[in-house]
């Protein structure tokens, strides 16, 4: 395989998958610690009706109206979840389950009924994303990776994820201690005058931004997996939040790379001539890494705990 083909077709897809995984994976730490893992799930599902609505209203496939629609749907769903939780007097998980499945189903109905599925936002795209469609025809040689004017011609979905990742990292760095405090002891945070509600809302807004940007690239399955798997894996490997954040980032980003490589080239190595869904494979790899961590983690792994019990 020549550098040119790799740079033009594989590199942007790898970048897209890895960056989508990274921004979701980092925020996922706080969702998992706050026992809100389902929130990532919920938001990534409700993005679908938002995107469809954005398309129906504007009639274009421009990313801006779609992202606005998706962001709007995410906020509506957060409000609805709170409403169902209060009025229905059910636990938050149940409220999320009710809201996101109904909104996702509404999105599917909208797609089928309005003919929006004739264009490229079909259900399959919603589930698995469109990783492989990212191409970077301007790239011709490895040296192009260092040339800003060529880098600027990367697909807009990649550039958007670069921006979102920078925003997510800046958010976590800026509010690290508040996120930590509010995730550990929200009541105590409130007694300090650090509003747990405010910090929690900021987190959900960032989750919505990451989910929308990532959904567009890799679909809802990968988004859900990336909010939870890297954080849960990293938690098994360390007892420090800062280390956990770094590890989750490494796990997320490398799942993106390994998953794509397996999906694109794995079947060929096995003698098939078709590649498989990269987004699906990335989620599978993230899941496998988690299984490995569950078995071999130094303190919390199955083997280590067996050994401790025996000792």
């Amino acid at each position: 395989m020549s550098a040119e083909i790799f740079l033009q077709f594989d590199f942007p897809s790898i970048l897209l998958g890895s960056l989508a995984a990274l921004c979701c994976g980092l925020l996922g730490n706080f969702l998992v610690l706050r026992r809100q893992s389902l929130m990532g799930d919920a938001i990534s599902h409700v993005v679908l009706p938002g995107i469809v609505l954005g398309f129906l209203i504007t009639g274009t496939l421009d990313s801006l109206p779609m992202m606005l629609g998706a962001g709007f749907a995410a906020l509506v769903s957060v409000g609805l979840i709170e409403l169902v939780r209060r009025l229905g007097k059910v636990e938050p998980g149940a409220a999320m389950g009710v809201v996101f499945t109904s909104m996702f189903a509404a999105g599917v109905l909208l797609l089928e009924q309005t003919g929006a599925s004739g264009v490229h936002i079909d259900v399959e795209h919603a589930l698995y994303g469109n990783l492989e469609s990212a191409i970077w025809l301007e790239a011709a040689a490895w040296g192009d990776l260092l040339r800003p004017e060529i880098l600027a011609t990367l697909p807009v979905s990649v550039l958007r994820l670069v921006v979102v990742n920078m925003a997510v990292i800046a958010f976590i760095l800026a509010f690290y201690k508040e996120l930590k405090l509010v995730s550990f002891d929200p009541l105590f945070a409130d007694t300090l005058g650090i509003s747990s509600k405010l910090v929690g809302t900021l987190l959900i807004v960032m989750v919505a931004v990451a989910a929308v940007a990532a959904f567009d690239a890799v679909g809802s399955i990968l988004v859900i997996a990336m909010f939870i798997c890297p954080a849960a894996t990293a938690r098994l490997l360390t007892d420090r939040l800062s280390t956990q954040l770094v590890l989750s980032g490494v796990v997320a980003f490398s799942s993106g790379i390994i998953g794509y490589v397996f999906a694109a080239f794995g079947p060929v190595w096995l003698g098939h001539d078709m590649s498989v869904s990269a987004a699906g494979m990335i989620a599978v790899v993230a899941g496998l890494i988690q299984v490995v961590a569950m078995v071999f983690a130094p303190r919390y792994g199955v083997i280590a705990r067996r050994r401790m019990q025996r000792a």
Binding site: L181, F184, A189
Partner: peptide, 29 residues
């Protein structure tokens, strides 16, 4: 002017934090 010591059972002690981390939280404000 007010410091609050919640019940021990009100938080999840599996949280990835050290004793020093938790005490430092008293200084966050």
């Amino acid at each position: 002017d007010i410091a609050y010591v919640p019940q021990r059972s009100s938080v999840d002690w599996d949280f990835p934090a050290t004793a020093l981390d938790v005490v430092t939280m008293g200084l966050y404000r």
